[in-house]
Nucleic acid binder design. Structure first.
Length: 455
RNA sequence: GCGCCUUUAGCUCAGUCGGUAGAGCAGCGGCCUUUUAAGCCGUUGGUCCCGGGUUCGAGUCCCGGAGGGCGCACCA
């Protein structure tokens, strides 16, 4: 509207052209026999202008009865006000929906975080940033699909309700299926089912789906969240890394209008390709001034010793210890987008071993702003190796690591029918959206973040 | 789960040393024909998060509880 009527000078109108608009009345300024008001819809906001000499006594009284928050339709023509604002000179209006509840303070808006999350509908009316973020989220996910589809991938939908939730290390939500009279779990990953589809011959599949993990809630964790998982037959982890880098760079380009720089918190982050790369063990060594060597880390007692050196509590398993050490030693340095490659096999139960180094797998994780954004590896397709790793997990689970899932033995059987060499990736969509829209809390990129009942 | 902070009018916030509840906006009644946080005059509105306790007297101090935020723990 502003662009279309840019040619108007203050006081000038375009009365020949009529407009019908609908939206929510966000403010009303009465000035004697004139009213100025602001009308908002999803595309933006426009000022309205009403004159008593045109509406008549009754019509003007009807305007006085309108409240902030009412939904109205208006008819009129555009002019530029004395103060230079493009304004709709209203000829007639009708009420489309009455607001009974008053809107929050027009200047301070709604600030109370609890109320904002619990009453998102109000939050979105008065805080345009929330709406903008949700629109950006929608656009970015659409762009992800477009980009992925361009590579010939098929989008699929696998079950959320499972008998055994596997494919990741996390505690599941449990529920009960009345028809089957069986305990069910909500999925903690889409991994195993997507790989079954690879066995079945789809060759390039992905799912952007809701994942549920029955764990803590904080600024980077919501119990239900959205994950993109994607698998490509005949790709290896290097192909996936290239794809991953191109995907992220593309999204940054979309969000910046062709650029490669983002500001996140107080850090400026460059997504110019190529992103940084560092091997897992090399990172451990570099950020510990060479103290934490491959030999120590890959040895169960050595890792336990490092934990003590760092003053961290004892870990139930060797893998758990490595995660803790990495988190403390390396993660804080990973602000620019960085691919951490060559993970140890002990923390990668579903990844294929690297040729020529049986302790290491073909895997990487992409970190950015200290957040893990994606995790990818060449998938293990040897059923015997997979069975052995599941058996090892059973032992770990017995030692007390509750996050380790029960093995999905049918998955081993699927592998026995033959799975092509395949690379897979998981991307935490919510965190990616946080990064791309500059938000510090997942709750800000979720329409309805989980809150405790009763408030 | 632990620690710190927080909760007062529809919204945003004050409330001193413990003395009986305030402002702005919104609402309501007026004035005002180019305002935009419009302005001016008047006015309504309170489970001070909940429950105990101390005190002549508690929004204020103490204990317990609830919601929320942040940090830690947990956790891709």
């Amino acid at each position: 509207m502003a662009a279309r009527y840019a040619f108007l000078v203050p006081g000038q109108d375009a009365a020949a052209e009529g407009w019908n608009l609908a939206g929510r009345l966000l403010s009303k300024r009465r000035m004697g026999k004139t009213i100025f008001a602001d009308l908002a819809d999803r595309t933006g906001r426009i000022q309205l202008y009403v004159r008593k000499d045109e509406t008549g006594e009754d019509g003007f009284a009807d305007w006085n009865d309108l409240d902030r928050g009412d939904l109205i339709g208006v008819r009129g023509y555009v002019f530029r006000s004395k103060m230079g604002e493009i304004t709709l000179h209203v000829i007639s209006f009708e009420v489309l929906g009455k607001a009974l509840m008053p809107l929050p303070d027009k200047w301070h808006g709604l600030v109370d975080v609890e109320k904002r999350y619990r009453q998102r509908y109000v939050d979105m009316i008065v805080n345009p940033d929330v709406r903008d973020t949700m629109i950006a989220r929608s656009r970015l996910i659409a762009e992800m699909r477009r980009f992925i589809d361009g590579y010939g991938f098929y989008e699929v939908e696998t079950p959320t309700l499972l008998h055994v939730a596997g494919g990741a290390a996390a505690r599941p939500f449990e529920t009960h299926c009345n028809a089957l009279d069986q305990i069910m779990q909500l999925r903690i990953a889409t991994e195993l089912n997507l790989k079954r589809l690879i066995v079945g011959g789809l060759e390039r599949v992905y799912e952007i789906g809701r994942i549920f993990r029955n764990e803590g809630i904080d600024t980077t964790h919501n119990p239900e969240f959205t994950m993109l998982e994607l698998y490509a037959a005949y790709w290896d982890v290097r192909d996936m890394l290239e794809f991953n880098e191109a995907l992220i760079a593309n999204l940054v380009s979309v969000v910046t209008g062709g650029g490669s720089e983002l500001t996140y918190g107080d850090a400026g982050i460059s997504f110019a390709r190529p992103f940084a790369r560092i091997a897992y063990l090399e990172g451990m060594s570099r950020f510990s001034d060479g103290k934490f060597t491959r030999e120590r880390l890959l040895d169960s007692n050595g890792a336990a010793g490092i934990l003590r050196e760092l003053g961290l509590p004892e870990s139930p398993t060797h893998g758990h210890a490595l995660d803790k050490i990495f988190e403390r030693v390396v993660e804080p340095h990973l602000i620019a987008p960085t691919f951490v490659t060559d993970y140890p096999v002990i923390i990668s139960p579903l990844a294929k071993r690297k040729a020529g180094d049986s302790d290491i797998v073909d895997r990487y994780e992409l970190f950015c702003a200290r957040m893990e954004i994606s995790n990818a590896f060449t998938e293990l397709n040897d059923p015997d190796d997979q069975r052995a790793r599941f058996e090892a997990q059973v032992a770990e689970r017995a030692k007390g690591d509750e996050e380790i899932p029960e093995p999905d033995w049918d998955f081993v059987r699927a592998l026995e029918y033959g799975m092509p060499p395949t690379a897979g990736i998981g991307i935490g969509v919510d965190r990616l959206i946080m990064l791309l829209t500059g938000h510090q809390s997942v709750r800000d990129v979720l329409v309805f973040p989980l809150q405790r009942q009763h408030g």
